[in-house]
Design a protein around this nucleic acid. Structure first.
Lengths: 113, 113
DNA sequence: CTGTATCCGTGATGATACTG
DNA sequence: CAGTATCATCACGGATACAG
């Protein structure tokens, strides 16, 4: 298990927004820009755009532009991006466990007082 | 698979330093403050201290203080922290794959030019 | 040895306005 | 609709000095 490999994995989904973008895409297959924006409360256009570009550079998502007026752009997980799903699932499971543990852990600390 | 669970998982190991601290601990079991500092090139005392405190709050590591002069403090993975190991391993594997894929992906883009 | 305290610069993020 | 451009802010982290 090497340090820098984990780094490269983390870079892909770390950050305030990356995973929040990935989630809807995992569930809905393909989404348009504004659709995505609506599904992520609090995100600004600027952030959504820049994060999408980064995900695209890492070949995790695919960007499909329809040459029409009004413009239409669809985003979806790339083939390579789909390899992320098991990780997201495992992180989700661990996250749930961790959240539960933290709860009882903090309660235990309280009682000591 | 819920969004906020992943969040809680990510918070545990995201950030510039968290996982760099976790790694030596996974391999060496237990380490002293300066030992840890030496094993993480570029980290400042301030950062190491603050990150260790956060990991401790999440009950991922254990801090053992010896009441002696000069002071001696040992850090190690907590029982709960050890549950992170499988995740780190999976992320490491995916990271390796991702790095390799990115390589050929970028080369492919070059050739198109 | 193992920290705390402070000060400070910079990059990331947000708000807002504008464009093809 | 799907962005880009610009400006302001603010938390993060680095450097340094000090302390128990």
């Amino acid at each position: 298990m090497s340090e820098c490999q984990v780094n490269s994995a983390l870079e892909a989904l770390v950050g305030k927004w990356k995973h929040k973008i990935l989630f809807p895409l995992v569930q809905n297959q393909t989404m348009r820009f504004n659709e995505l924006k609506r599904s992520i409360p609090g995100i600004t256009q600027k952030m959504l755009t820049s994060q999408l570009r980064e995900l695209e550079e890492h070949d995790l998502i695919t960007r499909k532009v329809y040459a029409q007026i009004p413009p239409k752009v669809e985003y979806s997980l790339s083939e390579h991006g789909k390899s992320l799903i098991p990780i997201l699932e495992q992180m989700s499971q661990w996250g749930a466990m961790h959240a539960a543990h933290l709860q009882s852990f903090k309660n235990a600390k309280k009682e000591v007082k």
